[in-house]
């Protein structure tokens, strides 16, 4: 009897918490597919607001995709060799560098954006191009990529593995390609998904760096909240969810996997 009482209590608390978290989401999603939100659900369901979002903000969606993929490529090109270098040369200098790379984690996005604007704001072409936002995103996501790869590399005896490959005739480049990259793969995957998810969802820094012609998905969201009818803004949220939730889930899975391997 006592057992079932505590069970009921547990269930109630859990359900209440779930409701607290999910009801706003459900309401928002419902608003996005309701014909007229002020009349309520009785006005019927429609996808017209979703199409309207597509009409108005398709550019934002494509810009965010382009930014996320470019950001991923940049963080891979810079982050993988950086993590490899740090893993191969442990020491105080490497630790210092690692902290330095991680600095954007601690500095607010706004401050980062302000610094970029101060430095490059006067370069007109660059300031107005999407690559300016890309620089901000790369800065902001780099620590996630480096740390995620570094954690996996630190857990394997990289030096001996590479020496083994070297005695078998592998050149430094072949060792990197055949031994380092495949063994770092779980970390690369986890880092890549984190970078893409963060880049798509980043608002702070992007809002500071964007121009009226360059609105990313979250900036567009803010814009739609401020200037569109509620149904459109809600439909926007729905689109955003559809894009980000699968990524988020994939990221969770990849991070858990990388962590398991590095233990």
């Amino acid at each position: 009897m006592i057992k079932s009482k505590t069970k009921i209590l547990q269930l109630t608390v859990t359900l209440t918490a779930c409701a607290f978290l999910f009801v706003p989401i459900i309401l928002s999603v419902l608003a996005g597919v309701t014909a007229n939100y002020f009349q309520g659900i009785s006005s019927g369901f429609t996808l017209k607001w979703v199409f309207r979002v597509w009409e108005l903000y398709a550019d934002s969606i494509f810009l965010s995709m382009r930014l996320a993929i470019s950001c991923l490529i940049m963080t891979l090109i810079i982050g993988l060799p950086a993590a490899y270098g740090l893993a191969r040369n442990p020491g105080w200098l490497s630790r210092l560098l690692e902290e330095f790379i991680s600095l954007p984690l601690a500095v607010p996005g706004l401050a980062l954006a302000l610094a970029l604007l101060q430095l490059y704001g006067s370069m007109k072409g660059f300031r107005a191009s999407w690559t300016f936002i890309l620089v901000g995103h790369v800065l902001y996501t780099m620590p996630f990529m480096v740390r995620s790869i570094l954690a996996v590399l630190a857990s394997i005896d990289l030096k001996t593995l590479e020496e083994g490959a070297a005695t078998l005739g592998a050149s430094p480049w072949q060792r990197f390609r055949d031994i380092v990259v495949p063994n770092a793969m779980p970390g690369i995957l986890a880092g890549a998904l984190t970078v893409v998810t963060l880049s798509i969802g980043e608002f702070n820094l992007t809002w500071m760096l964007h121009t009226p012609y360059l609105k990313t998905l979250p900036v567009g969201l803010a814009d739609s909240y401020a200037s569109m009818r509620l149904e459109v803004a809600s439909a926007y949220t729905l689109v955003f969810f559809v894009l980000i939730v699968p990524l988020l889930m994939a990221m969770q899975w990849a991070s858990a996997r990388a962590q398991r391997i590095s233990q």
């Binding site: 005896d157 001996t160 593995l161 020496e163 083994g164 055949d178 031994i179 063994n183 793969m185």
Partner: peptide
């Protein structure tokens, strides 16, 4: 042949 064998886990 290394002490830890250094076999490639991948």
């Amino acid at each position: 042949v290394f002490q830890s064998y250094a076999l490639f886990p991948n």
